[in-house]
Design a protein around this nucleic acid. Sequence first.
DNA 1: GCAAAAGGGTGTTAGCTAGC
DNA 2: GCTAGCTAACACCCTTTTGC
Length: 204
Amino acid sequence: MTLISAGKSLMSAIIEKLYSKIQGKEYSYGQLFEVINERNKQMEYSNILAASQEKGMVNRDDLNLDIQFERSNIDIYKIVRKGDYVIHLRSFQGGFAFSNMTGVCSPAYTILRPSTLLEYGYLSYYFKSYRFIKSLIIVTYGIRDGRSISVEEWLNLKISIPSKEHQLHILKVLRSFDLKIENEEAYASCLSNQKQYLLRQMFI
DNA sequence: GCAAAAGGGTGTTAGCTAGC
DNA sequence: GCTAGCTAACACCCTTTTGC
């Protein structure tokens, strides 16, 4: 097991632990989120976002995927704003995606805008956790590709939300771990490049 | 070792329904 | 009749697995 995969496993365990111990006021998701259906009619945004299971909402250009679509159709795309959460086509497998940027996304997505009860990004880690994905089973229907999440039913589910101070504390802990893993990944990538370079030099 | 099949990830779009 | 919203079906590409 590499340091990075061990770090990721530890991160998952910490997320499980932190979010399972929360003692706060109970809210339904419907009280915490508003479903937004804002379309890009004025062609205000041209950067198209895609939901990746690993990194949340990212620029589609960064995905290295050749997706065929009519660019003139982006007026019907939905606007995702910074801080929004997105229910995407694979949410039943990878949880909900958090957006760190503003842009447009496929009309097949559901956009959730958090209320002021939530700190920026507070649920971004929880929505990717095994605990949360498991909880989606009761509001998921269909088989394989046809699977989708009943947003209406999900909005009725309950969750405990701690004070904003506690939310910030949890975020601080998780972000520091996240940063550590990112640094290790960057370091591993540098070492790999260096190895390739040295191997090339050996055979010149 | 290699080709084919299967599976996974991300998305578009056609068709249906409801509201105006 | 038009438009918007929703959903199932399907497209496309890449990676992994399987069988020979």
